[in-house]
């Protein structure tokens, strides 16, 4: 609780007047001899020392008052004021720094969230691109496979037709041979072929 020293001087005269009055009163009493008479053996009540005590009390107390009001108390007041202002300034600075730190933390959070969003987008795109690529590859492979299958089927069908043609020729040969063996008379090739065709169509 710092106290300003400007008001101190104003009551200095008060103090001076008060102490002077007190000193005069005491000195007057001390100067009147025989007030306490012979019974003044108890030292604190002995008026013989009143004047000396008052005189030196006035001097020492005045010096003390002067030292306190002019030197010690204003100095202590300013020290404490300075301390209060220093603490206040430091607190302000700390609050400012804290605000800055919070701002930075927020910016960091924001950047982090953005980066996360970006990463998600990139991952999504990559995933989609990958899916598209693999789809295309699958389609191509499937088409290729289908083409190969069709080719194979065509080959099989041709082979089968060829084989069937061979079977017919062989059948007509065998039929001619059997007929000639049985009848001793060889049928004509066209007759045999017609018979085989008939049998094939039936079977």
């Amino acid at each position: 609780m710092p106290v300003r020293s400007s008001g101190f001087a104003r009551q200095g005269w008060l103090l001076a007047v008060g102490s002077f009055a007190t000193l005069l009163a005491g000195a007057a009493q001390a100067a009147t001899p025989g007030l306490s008479g012979e019974k003044a053996s108890f030292p604190p009540f002995d008026p013989a020392h009143f004047a000396s005590n008052l005189f030196w009390l006035a001097i020492t107390f005045a010096v003390l008052y002067w030292l306190m009001s002019k030197v010690a108390l204003p100095r202590l007041g300013s020290i404490m004021e300075e301390r209060a202002s220093t603490i206040g300034r430091d607190l302000d600075q700390a609050a400012q720094l804290q605000g800055k730190a919070e701002e930075m933390a927020q910016a960091y959070e924001k950047a982090l969230a953005e980066a996360r969003k970006n990463a998600q987008g990139i991952a999504q795109t990559a995933r989609e691109a990958g899916a598209k690529a693999s789809d295309a590859q699958r389609h191509a492979t499937e088409a290729e496979l289908a083409a190969k299958m069709a080719q194979a089927e065509a080959t099989i069908a041709k082979t089968k037709t060829d084989a069937m043609g061979n079977v017919r020729d062989l059948g007509s040969d065998i039929a001619a041979a059997i007929v000639s063996k049985l009848t001793g008379q060889a049928p004509s090739a066209s007759e045999a072929a017609a018979a085989v065709d008939q049998a094939l169509a039936r079977g």
């Binding site: 000195a27 001390a30 100067a31 013989a48 020392h49 004047a51 000396s52 005590n53 005189f55 030196w56 009390l57 020492t60 010096v63 003390l64 030292l67 306190m68 030197v71 010690a72 108390l73 100095r75 202590l76 020290i79």
Partner: peptide, 28 residues
């Protein structure tokens, strides 16, 4: 005409003054 001797009482007033001043003036 007054006895204003420097007594043992005075001495201790001065000591009081010195001690208080030491704490308050030298201390600050």
């Amino acid at each position: 005409g007054l006895d204003l001797s420097f007594t043992n009482s005075t001495l201790w007033m001065v000591v009081v003054l010195a001690v208080v001043s030491a704490i308050m003036v030298y201390g600050s």
